[in-house]
């Protein structure tokens, strides 16, 4: 079994808000250095799954193992320290701080090191995401695109082992998208395990090793990208509900 070698493994995760079950018995395992794509219509529970993995939200049932350790009882901060990092779908910048300081916060506190020691990493993350020229700008003055870049920069600056990306390719031009794909590929090649929620399928499929499909909080398919995209069941649910975003 892959149980012992998995970087992250979720078993039977469930979460309801009142009568609304947003995550229903979701299980998956991902090996170190692999990339998993998550697709599904809006409201399928993709972001909730991220919240469960990062510890922002507690599951009603199920468990999560990270690098062989049961992290179900671990809080969000401690999971971050262990190397789980995420970008938010709706960017959450520290608006009053500069771009550099945003990255510096991530590098400093996610690893529990001094500001001085975190500086090179913050700088590296900003260079890799192309934000370096805007390093002195206040994050609140950035446009949406740069805010998304900043999400990614902060996530990288934490030196993650597991990177959770939540819809970062939406709204990019083709050229920007190519850059983004190259960046994520380089992150993956450095050994980081990646889980990526994305509606821009061609970007997603050029990176991920496997795809998981969620619908109404349930996992309805998982497998090789090619097989998944050809499955009529997936096509019916996914393409039917979210047609405009599937220009793959």
């Amino acid at each position: 079994m892959m149980q012992s070698t998995a970087a992250i493994e979720a078993t039977g995760l469930s979460k309801s808000y009142g009568a609304l079950a947003v995550t229903r018995d979701v299980s998956f395992a991902l090996e170190p250095g692999c990339a998993l794509g998550i697709i599904g219509p809006n409201g399928a529970g993709k972001t909730t799954l991220f919240n469960l993995l990062t510890g922002a939200v507690r599951p009603d049932a199920g468990s999560i193992r990270f690098a062989g350790k049961d992290i179900s009882p671990t809080d969000a901060r401690a999971r971050c320290r262990m190397g789980i990092s995420r970008s938010f779908q709706v960017p959450q910048p520290f608006s009053g701080l500069t771009v550099f300081e945003n990255a510096l916060v991530a590098a400093t506190f996610a690893q529990g090191i001094s500001e001085q020691a975190a500086r090179p990493q913050a700088e590296d993350a900003l260079r890799r995401t192309g934000l370096w020229p805007k390093t002195a700008k206040k994050a609140g003055e950035l446009g949406l695109l740069d805010r998304k870049r900043l999400e990614l920069a902060r996530a990288i600056a934490t030196a993650p082992k597991l990177l959770l990306l939540d819809e970062i390719a939406g709204g990019l031009t083709d050229a920007e998208c190519v850059e983004l794909i190259q960046l994520i590929r380089s992150i993956k090649e450095s050994g980081v395990t990646i889980i990526w929620i994305e509606h821009v399928l061609h970007a997603l499929l050029s990176i991920v090793d496997r795809v998981m499909v969620l619908d109404f909080g349930q996992k309805i398919a998982e497998g090789e990208p090619r097989d998944i995209m050809q499955s009529p069941e997936v096509a019916a649910i996914y393409l039917g509900l979210d047609g405009e975003n599937t220009h793959a």
Partner: peptide, 23 residues
Amino acid sequence: SRAGLALMAVRDNRLAAASLGID
């Protein structure tokens, strides 16, 4: 100081601060 950096992060965005390892 380092604690001040955390404090300013908490001021601007609590959600992000928590997810980046700030207690």
